[in-house]
Write a protein that binds this DNA or RNA. Sequence first.
DNA 1: TTAACTACTTACTAAAAAGTAAGAATTATT
DNA 2: AATAATTCTTACTTTTTAGTAAGTAGTTAA
Lengths: 105, 105
Amino acid sequence: MKKNEINKIECPVGKALKIIGGKWRLRILNEIGEEKRRFGELKRLIPDISEKMLIQELKTLMEYNLVSKKSYHQIPPKVEYSLTEKGKKVFPVLEQIVIFANVID
Amino acid sequence: MKKNEINKIECPVGKALKIIGGKWRLRILNEIGEEKRRFGELKRLIPDISEKMLIQELKTLMEYNLVSKKSYHQIPPKVEYSLTEKGKKVFPVLEQIVIFANVID
DNA sequence: TTAACTACTTACTAAAAAGTAAGAATTATT
DNA sequence: AATAATTCTTACTTTTTAGTAAGTAGTTAA
């Protein structure tokens, strides 16, 4: 079996979940949305996340190139997170998830 | 704060993830799709899941009323799992996840 | 009488994910 | 000289999730 066939073993759902699965990633992507969000702002928007998880997940999302970061070299520091073009591709997923959430009860 | 406002605290994304989040649920729902699936069939379709997890997650999905089960009282036993009407409401989510999976790399 | 079939169950262990709490960095302000 | 501001980091613990491996049930076929 060739290396570039290995990707095809796994179903697309499994593949996507490796990237946007887990407790926090979709929520973070959702809160960033079309905006530029500061770290502290995201913390407020997702009150139940710990700082550790927020920064850890942001880091991972940046590795996947779904999120980008701009640091202003000020004291106290200021950073802005936003979605990359690739990151914006989750919008339709989020849209459907929100619809699903409203349809269940 | 009134009790029926409590639901509104959490964002819809978080709410949906409680139901369809985790490593296996969307994959199971995806493999059932429009079909009637036997336990052993699902096991084959999702080769990396353990029997324990498969049955545990099926049980949970049934509690959420996304999946229903029909047992034929035969020996050896035969059961069929299928999506309820409510369960079929995840299709648009799955659809977008599959699109997302194909767009990333 | 033994094995095979299918859908589970259970006890136990291991791994992954998440939480907590403290602290570092750096400059302005009091 | 102490405090506040903001974005992180680190060590440690707890909780949650998942995996393993063995076993159960009840017929049928070898």
